[in-house]
Design a binder for these strands. Structure first.
Lengths: 210, 210
DNA sequence: TAGATTGTTAATCGATTAACAATC
DNA sequence: TAGATTGTTAATCGATTAACAATC
């Protein structure tokens, strides 16, 4: 919670990657690794790894390297993977339903507690064991069940209004899959995901592969 | 195809965002916009917009700004949205199925022509009108039907082997949703997508919101 | 023409890499 | 202890922003 120096977003965005590589190494039974060896595995410089990790603390040991199990648990803590985040999904279309079934969310501590949609055909049913409510019930539900994160996957037109409703309820974070960008807001942390952006970058690179 | 100066990846990754904002403005019937006005909408600097666009050409006009329709079509061309990419999905699990139903892919020129999986329960069936083949048939299929892009959404263990098979077939790009990073390869362009990375960044920001 | 706004060069800022003394 | 490898400072590199002459 208390950050002395501001840690750059570039560093933060690299943390999950360290987290994954350390998880894999740990699962493979490896006990320790040097920044040099990890840098080869990950395709980055050893300098960057040491700089990045030292934003958070001196987790290494000279002449030894990093203990994988303990570094992994440090990074898990920094990323909040050790906590539970109560999460709801708004919009049970294509993407919303896929996320409702995505096992990695609960594995990382993101528990889907409710799903909201306006389609009468699915309201009252369950998706992967989670009840689907009418979107009208959003405020009532969140007032009753403290919610940390809302996953928003609704059409363009509905995005802004729903984002505002969610922010007003005191939800802390918004994971936005809707096709409209949401600008950063003081009340709620927003992470926009645009799958097609990534695909279009791939298309560009295919066409411009030197 | 011919790039005089190397255009940085940071610029490329911003292009789809320009593309989306211009599509919205165009749909709203706006005819022209200055870098200053667009910068306010997008939450970036006008300088950056002008620098970015000038990597590709002088699309603006002094005293006037940018014509939205023509800038939109220029960026569409740069990103390759005007072309067709023959695309297959490998792994019809949760994510693979969602992508098979995702309307934005074909809307951007990415036509899903086949789906591959190893689950006998779905082989021979159709998902969103596209036939599901056994993954064994991958090489045969691609030899017969020239394929530009493979979307990979398979478990960790199968990722590397399938990526290599795909590269060997002459597929040009790999959109990788599998939980294993694929290192950049000379033969094939790779774009790794890690949804949970983005979610973990959101979790971090919630916990460290100054 | 006068005003507006670009294209582009120069200045600044921040992030990455290199280097090495500290230390396990 | 000697060797290895970190933590951290300094140097480099690249990306962003500012400024302004060119020009529509």
């Amino acid at each position: 919670m208390t950050d002395k120096k501001k840690i750059s977003i570039a560093v933060i965005r690299r943390l999950p990657r360290y987290y994954r590589y350390l998880a894999d190494l740990n699962k493979a039974g490896v006990q320790r690794i040097s920044s040099g060896d990890l840098s080869k595995k990950m395709g980055v410089t050893a300098s960057q790894i040491r700089q990045d990790l030292n934003c958070f603390g001196g987790y290494g040991q000279q002449g030894y390297g990093y203990n994988i199990k303990s570094l992994y648990s440090e990074i898990s803590g920094i990323l909040g993977v050790t906590e539970k985040f109560k999460t709801v999904i708004i919009g049970a279309g294509n993407i919303g339903q896929a996320l409702a079934h995505y096992p990695n969310l609960s594995a990382r501590g993101y528990d889907i507690t409710a799903i909201f949609d306006i389609n009468p055909a699915i309201i009252g049913s369950k998706i992967n064991g989670v009840e689907v409510y009418h979107t009208d019930k959003l405020e009532t539900y969140i007032a009753k069940h403290k919610t940390d994160i809302a996953i928003l996957s609704v059409p363009f037109d509905q995005t802004r209004a729903l984002a505002e409703r969610v922010a007003k309820c005191g939800v802390k974070g918004l994971w936005n899959f809707s096709p409209m960008d949401l600008q950063i807001d003081r009340d709620i942390v927003i992470e926009n995901v645009h799958l097609t952006d990534s695909l279009m970058v791939l298309g560009y690179m295919i066409n411009h592969k030197d």
